[in-house]
């Protein structure tokens, strides 16, 4: 029974994740809309600054969007922001962004958890906890273990230089 509830909760989370993908955003500037998520893909239209869009999906540096005027296509991820262009209008709370604190299906109570804080006050009141750091140190992963984990996740190491604020590659001073 407990397991059933766990899976139902997991399902709810997945549906939250799906709802997350359907969220809305707006363009930061006048933006070309492409047919495919590539720089040299065909332009299918243009959106003005602060155009409202619905996020359909994401791929690398591109967001697939649907605009109010039915225009569909791909825009640069960093040429848009999620939410509303007016911060005073319907700002998102953390609980909402996560998908918590919403009314549960079936009319259950609103989900709330006791606040376990790491506020400035909590930090100021902190006393050193040596045992926790010792515990933290027991989870350390050796390099070989990390490489195995990467391989299992389909991750291949790349050679990429650091970039400066203007996006130019820089050498690392050792």
């Amino acid at each position: 029974m407990t397991r059933t509830w766990t899976w139902m909760a997991a399902g709810l989370l997945l549906s939250c994740a799906a709802a997350h993908a359907q969220e809305t955003g707006y363009t930061l500037r006048e933006t070309e809309v492409k047919a495919k998520p590539f720089l040299d893909a065909e332009n299918v239209g243009k959106l003005p600054e602060k155009a409202q869009v619905t996020v359909v999906s994401r791929q690398g540096g591109w967001t697939q969007i649907r605009a109010d005027n039915k225009l569909e296509g791909w825009i640069r991820l960093l040429s848009m922001r999620l939410g509303s262009p007016d911060p005073q209008k319907k700002p998102t709370a953390v609980a909402t962004a996560i998908g918590f604190g919403k009314q549960r299906p079936g009319g259950g109570p609103t989900v709330t958890t006791g606040v376990r804080g790491f506020s400035e006050e909590d930090l100021k009141a902190a006393k050193p906890n040596p045992e926790e750091v010792k515990k933290m140190e027991t989870f350390t992963i050796p390099p070989a273990g990390a490489a195995q984990f990467a391989a299992a996740g389909g991750l291949n190491a790349q050679t990429v230089s650091y970039v400066d604020a203007d996006g130019k590659f820089v050498k690392v001073k050792k």
């Binding site: 804080g117 790491f118 909590d122 930090l123 902190a126 050193p128 906890n129 926790e132 750091v133 933290m136």
Partner: peptide, 9 residues
């Protein structure tokens, strides 16, 4: 030790 003193793992 102080950071984890504010909140444990």
């Amino acid at each position: 030790e102080t950071l984890l003193g504010a909140r444990p793992m």
